[in-house]
Structure formats: C-alpha cells, structure tokens
C-alpha cells in the first residue's frame, strides 16, 4: 500500500486533488483506493491535509496516515508552519510547489524531492479561481512524473472524471506542462 498525504491551505483544492488521484489510481487498475479530507471543519487559508491510499487489494484501514510514502505540498510556506516531515517516511518523496528547482530545495534529512512552479503554470494557463491560482492540477502533473505510481495518462482520465468541458482542457494543458517542468533529486 502506498500512502500519499496532501498538505495545503483551505481553498487550494487539496481534497479534490486527493480524490482525483484516487480515481486515477482506480482507473489504472488499483483495486484499493481511498481518499479522505482532514476530518472536521475546513476553513479557507488554514493549513489542512488530505490523504490518498493506493493498493492492489481493497483497503481495510481507515485510520489517519501515520507516515506517508509521498507528501505533496501545495504551499511551500507550510514548511515553516507544519512539521511536514514528521508524517513522511524516511526516504519518502516530497513534492513541492516552489519556484526553486529540486536541487535548490533544502529540507534536510533523507528524502526524494520533486519541485514544480505550480503557481507559474496555473497563471500561464489562466487557471485562477476566486483570485488565486489553481495549483492542485500542476501538482498532480508533478505527481505523475515523480511518484512512479499513477501514470500521466490515468491522471488525465481522473481529471476528466472530475471536470467537464472547457475546464478540463485548460487543466490538462497545465497538467502536462507540470509533468514536463518537474525537477527531481535524490529519488531512490
């Protein structure tokens, strides 16, 4: 079983990203997928998490993720607020929305790092909602590239499941751009 934890702020589409990943993984053939929001009230701007579990067999475990295999960080400022590494396995992968390249990201410890400038990609593709760039789609692209778990093809399918018409087109362009632009270091 692979466990993915999504760190973001209320309004960034963390829960939706976790759902799309679960859907994509299921479409790709994983029989066991779950996605869950942080249980409880959700507030715009507040740090929150969502999670996706992916396995070959149906999932019987519904407790919160203790140590994820992959952490996706939608907002790099969270690194200073939340102890993101505490819920990531040693040697796990962290995927960050940042202007830096993976080589330039310093987080200490022994982790794989993937970096993508999700804000720039969102703005370039005019993915803006309520005045803020939509960063979850580009991060799904980075996930497809760095995660070695769910392919770009199936994440595209997952996106189409969640979105309709014109929205899907722009998001898929952004998804592909992020897939291309993602930089990676230290990956085991």
């Amino acid at each position: 079983m692979q466990e993915v934890i999504w760190h973001g702020r209320g309004g960034q589409g963390v829960v939706v990203a976790a759902q799309i990943l679960a859907e994509s993984a299921y479409l790709q053939g994983f029989k066991g997928v779950t996605s869950a929001p942080t249980f409880g009230p959700e507030r715009r701007g507040a740090p929150l998490t969502a999670s996706t579990r992916i396995a070959n067999e149906p999932i019987r475990m519904f407790s919160q993720i203790e140590r994820a295999d992959i952490a996706v960080v939608l907002d790099a400022s969270l690194l200073e607020v939340v102890d993101i590494l505490a819920s990531l396995k040693e040697g796990g992968l962290i995927i960050i929305n940042t202007q830096l390249k993976a080589d330039e990201v310093e987080i200490g410890g022994c982790y794989g790092i993937a970096a993508v400038d999700a804000v720039a990609i969102a703005l370039k593709h005019r993915l803006i909602k309520e005045g803020a760039p939509i960063v979850n789609t580009p991060l799904l692209g980075a996930f497809a590239r760095a995660g070695d778990l769910v392919s770009l093809e199936y994440i595209e399918k997952g996106l189409r499941w969640k979105l309709s018409g014109g929205a899907a087109t722009a998001n898929i362009l952004a998804l592909n751009a992020a897939f291309e632009e993602t930089t990676i270091k230290n990956k085991s």
């Binding site: 939706v16 409880g40 009230p41 959700e42 909602k129 998001n171």
Partner: peptide, 26 residues
C-alpha cells in the same frame, strides 16, 4: 494540537457545520 488549535481560536460553531468542502476546482 497544531491542526486544531486554530479552530479553537476561531471559536467555530460546530453543530450544523457543513462537511469539509474542497473548493470545486481545479
């Protein structure tokens, strides 16, 4: 403690609070 201290500060009204809602994006 980190996750919930803010909710205490904001003194949110719990009963009838809707479910966690992701913004229906991207």
């Amino acid at each position: 403690r980190i996750n919930y201290s803010r909710s205490i500060k904001k003194n949110i009204c719990c009963r009838g609070t809707g479910p966690a809602r992701g913004v229906a994006s991207p």
